[in-house]
Design a protein around this nucleic acid. Structure first.
Lengths: 321, 321
DNA sequence: TTGAAAGCGGTACCAG
DNA sequence: CTGGTACCGCTTTCAA
């Protein structure tokens, strides 16, 4: 704790004008004599001067900062995504300010407003439901996880990935393949479509489906429902790793073995899924590619076409391979 | 995307001075006539005016914002902590800007500088190692997870918690109790001391100990080391949930059962530990209490005494109860 | 190569 | 109750 040192203090100490201090700090836009530069640098060192980014932003109109809002900080997928976005942004000289909406649309709205008020240079909205009204935003916004017409948005190819998962399961000879899908949005989720498509492609009828929360508890609930079914499915596609983790628990408690009694494939591909028992076969989200694209669109300020990136099936133990 | 609306535009539209706009927006410090207020509110609505927090911060000298740096966004413990801090801060009208240092001291330094440059009103540093030089900071800083003399810091009672875990294990009749401890810092970790104390209190000799990363891979490595030991311990205390998860995997792969062959207790108590197989008995960190205290100290600007909060043993299946 | 000064968007004092 | 205005820290043009 000490009183803040300003550019004025530095100028006075170095015996130059504030303009010169600015030239030195920013390495431009005017040249500075070696002597003056040295004196300024010395002053900065001695005084412990740190430029005020707030003032700079006010003057230049740019904060060189992106805001990132995820639906749930506790979901490892979003943690991974945040990390990847942070990395990609840092490479371009931007700072990412992260915050979580905790799955609450009201909170999400508040966070969006707070970030915009802070004059972020761009906003990343990871949202499981509908995106809030962004019409007031005067900065580029990229929505992740949901393709929105007219808005820059990136997502994995949910449908294709889900379908691949189901076809893989069907390839193991399963004929009753259930779906555990997440809540949110009112349209039919892409992953549900993919599941259905996979079933069709394999000539199978729809299996039972249940809608639950995206987290472990949701999967656990789904599992309890599933084991109580008259015609129990022999395979399940879960729309998130976390759900699959909860599902595994419910199956275990019911004395069912995975994959012997019930095979499982999950969507996401987070580290947690690798350490579950059995290790989960997953449809891996293209986190790095999406992050790179998000940052690219933010930096270039282009309203990109909604784009979906291919997923990858990572085979482990839970599918019965 | 539209051009930014400023207070000037609002004043002009409403036919008042900028001062009056300010009084309306901030509900003070001067009274405004109902008519003027109504006109201003109307102008704000029509124009879609959003106050520029950057300018406000510059003028008032306060951003009403806290910075939070965690060592690893992927660790559920820190996600929980971030959420709790965010909640506590929001109740006091503060916004929390979160970022992760990814376990790299260099990155941590950078992030600290970036946050300070953005004039945060306070900084929370969750750090597994030594804290960086904070002498330049002119705002309150609270360190979490490590008690530092002369710096506001909060942490769980690591030693006490670890000791309770070990004594619990000893109470089950185990006599060879191993330690899996995290890397970082150069002092003897508190959790290691607690483990040793617990052993002493039970009249047991030191068990084998290994230092590995705090995450799943670290625990996995530790597990592989452990199963190869000549005199294999029958119980393990792991310094984080994630390590225990990795440990479980290694034990399973070696054909060992938990808790029958090896009992496990972990430190942290995150949701992930509840869904592992078997569910982990854990020493639960007092996340909410710590978060509340962190925010209190930041808001009040007091350099608090380093304080440690009691943990709680949560008994599940992995200990053999 | 340097300095003076305007102005970014707000706040709040002072005078009316 | 309201308007005019100085100022927060910084950038950058313009003139010297």
């Amino acid at each position: 704790m000490s009183s803040p040192v300003t550019r004025n203090d530095v100028a006075r100490y170095a015996g130059v004008s504030t303009a010169v201090v600015s030239y030195v700090v920013n390495d431009g836009p005017r040249a500075v004599s070696p002597q003056a530069r040295e004196r300024v640098l010395e002053a900065i060192r001695v005084l412990g001067y740190r430029p005020n980014a707030t003032a700079r932003a006010l003057r230049t109109g740019s904060t060189q900062t992106f805001g990132l809002i995820t639906p749930d900080g506790g979901n490892p997928l979003f943690a991974e995504l945040a990390k990847a976005i942070d990395k990609a942004a840092a490479e371009r000289g931007y700072v990412v300010l992260q915050t979580s909406a905790d799955g609450d649309p009201e909170t999400e709205r508040t966070k969006v407003a707070q970030l915009l008020a802070r004059q972020v240079s761009g906003l990343v909205l990871v949202t499981p439901t509908e995106a809030p009204d962004l019409s007031g935003a005067d900065v580029p916004v990229v929505v992740v996880n949901r393709l929105l017409p007219g808005v820059s948005s990136v997502s994995p190819r949910y449908r294709e990935g889900a379908r691949a998962a189901v076809e893989h399961l069907a390839g193991h000879g399963h004929t009753r393949i259930a779906l555990v899908i997440g809540e949110g949005g009112r349209r039919v989720p892409e992953r549900e479509r993919g599941w259905r498509e996979g079933l069709r492609a394999a000539g199978l009828p729809d299996g039972p489906a249940i809608r639950v929360g995206f987290r472990r508890e949701g999967g656990y609930l789904a599992g309890q429902w599933l084991v109580g079914l008259e015609e129990r499915p022999t395979a399940v596609f879960a729309s998130s790793d976390l759900q699959a983790i909860g599902l595994l628990r419910a199956l275990r408690e019911a004395g069912l073995r995975v994959p012997a009694d019930v095979a499982v494939v999950a969507f996401d591909g987070t580290p947690e899924a690798e350490y579950s028992w059995p290790p989960l076969t997953v449809v891996r989200q293209p986190v790095e590619r999406m992050a790179a694209e998000v940052v690219r669109q933010l930096v270039e300020g282009t309203v990109g076409e909604p784009t979906a990136y291919p997923t990858e099936l990572v085979v482990r133990k839970s599918c019965g391979c």
